[in-house]
Amino acid sequence: MSAPTPVLEVEDLRVRLRTPRGPADVVNGLSYSVGPGETVAVVGESGSGKSVSVLALLGLLPRGVATVTGRALLQGEDLLTMPPERLRQVRGPGAGMVFQDPMTSLNPVLTIGRQLVEGLRAHSDMDKAAARRRAAELLGEVGLPDPDGALDRYPHELSGGMRQRVIIAIALSNSPALLIADEATTALDVTVQAQIIDLVEKLQADHGTGVIWITHDLGVVAGIADRVLVMYGGRCVEDGTVDDVLEHPAHPYTRGLLGALPDLAQPAVDGVVPDLATVPGTPPAPTDLPPGCVFWPRCPVRGDARCETEQPPLVQIGPSSGALPHRAATWCTETSALGTESSGEAR
């Protein structure tokens, strides 16, 4: 799974935003790599910094507001020190992007064909006719019925699922080495989501594309990811293979998140569905992160003063099932110390 030369290597990525309420540390020291054909899922709730972390990679954060530091090597080239013109060139063929809302990612007044052809021609010397043929091919590849007809359609004439396919076609039009999907299926129905996930997996197998899949949906993660990175308060609090993280979560936050999920697979116990475990409170504001463990204020198993004052490093915990280490940033290293999550609300 983890090939010798990764497509993307991120080291100690930090993002600080200037806000009216003071500097906000939105991403705090994130390191990971994406191999060819590998899918890395970045999981977290709103405000965890998961979206900002990839926007920062591609230089899509407003200049002057955001300070980005660290290293992000896309096929050996550092995205963070790249001049803007080079970054623009890289965005198409190097890294494609798919965002949550397919309607706002497409220009409503241009036909699908025009938008695809433009993207194709910007990064190659294809002539118009060749680009149009390639565009129709791409639409066929992403499973659009009647690709030739679709070229002359406007975005509003397509359904949400079809629009998201078009976005994926645009993102893949220059066969990028890396595909970034930011909540790409969140706005879609589950049956359409299943179609899109199938599509991405197939294309990934065909082209060896590395994928960063950002989502809050642990179910989707289980289906698509090889490796999982759980973010909280701008930090990676746990990472490892998808089996390690989802089946043997080590960090109290990951456990809380999984416990909070209504599970279709194992519902009733003697005909009674137990209450969901909840994580009390709300995530910390990035302007005011706790000095110790970021999860401390909400942690159900928080311990001594060390949790409150000293930041736990991301270290290997116990054995791992795959080639990747299973790491967590918590002082509760002994899994037994975690006990079972408190179920229900403490009222």
Partner: peptide, 15 residues
Amino acid sequence: QALLSAVPLPHPALE
């Protein structure tokens, strides 16, 4: 049946 089968479950092995 289709709807149910499309719901992603947080269990990698099962998925």
